[in-house]
Design a protein around this nucleic acid. Structure first.
Lengths: 162, 162
DNA sequence: ATAAACCTTAGAGTATACTCTCAAGCAAGA
DNA sequence: TCTTGCTTGAGAGTATACTCTAAGGTTTAT
């Protein structure tokens, strides 16, 4: 049972253009061809295709994935290197998630600000709002933002004093 | 107390080029200028700068942030629209985090595969490994990957039968 | 006065990842 | 046979977000 580029594209939720682009970039050298040069994807190719798609989702560039697939094709002598690449990317993804969660906190804070402002009819409602009037989680986020902006001042003053 | 582009860049962990680029794109129209046309950033500008940087980190494009800042400058009549934008982006970030966590699972699975293969000296160690020999969390991830690749087959068979 | 160290803008260049067009080839059905 | 519908590679085009260069202006120290 073989699959065409369009079928594979549909399964991976990518465009056929993108599959051919990845192929051109050397990410799909393991895919066989028929006598006319058409790619024939096999059942057993899907795990590897899925891994490649996952590495992409994990934020690896095509160049990085290319380097990784070259190591894969080189065989057992490169296992340690491949492990290192995967572990590095793991760390990178964990960092990305942390960063997104911080950004999410800011969005939660803004959501609360706008909900209150919408109720009041004006954003001026926040001009002199005491922290006690904020929900605890919002207050925590605002505190974190304030600390960051204070750091800015602090750094500046330090720089000015030297 | 005023701040220059370079100082602000340092605080936001961006390059001065990037700050000027954002300015050119209309993200910093609220920043005042001195008599020579130099940007003068004030203490009170930092929260807004931080929000813009957060929206960027949340994955909004410059165009989207531009649209948002235009609404901000328009005043209280746009609060509901701004709230909607923030809530939409919140959802987008939550999706991004979910996707990254899925990618992370795949990386954890691959880490385990390579650790075992490194010990054995060959990736062939996995060719006939029974699921019982895998740690439960790894088995769960492998199951999820298998289900996804099986979906591929399933979809194909369905398509072939119609 | 003049050089250093900032600032400014316009605009060109770069990197990444597609995204699309085109011309051509092959296979199957009317 | 001819049209339809797929495939192919080459290569051009697009979008995004920087990133840098160049030319010029101001302030400050020597």
């Amino acid at each position: 049972m073989y699959y065409t580029v369009c079928e594979v594209a549909k399964r991976l939720n990518l465009s056929p253009h993108t599959i051919r682009f990845y192929s051109k970039e050397g990410l799909l050298d393991f895919v066989e061809r028929d006598q006319n040069g058409n790619r024939i994807f096999k059942e057993s190719d899907f795990e590897r295709l899925f891994i490649i798609a996952s590495l992409k989702r994990a934020g690896m560039s095509i160049k990085q994935i290319r380097a990784f697939t070259l190591l894969c094709d080189k065989g057992d002598s490169t296992i340690a290197q491949r492990l290192q690449i995967i572990m590095n990317q793991r760390e990178a993804v964990e960092e990305q998630i942390t960063e997104l969660q911080d950004a999410l906190d800011v969005l939660k804070y803004k959501t609360w600000l706008y909900e209150v402002a919408l109720e009041a009819g004006t954003t001026a409602v926040h001009d002199h709002m005491p922290p006690e009037d904020m929900p605890p989680n919002i207050r925590r986020i605002k505190e974190r933002i304030r600390r960051l902006t204070d750091d800015m001042e602090q750094c500046y003053r330090n720089a000015a004093n030297t």
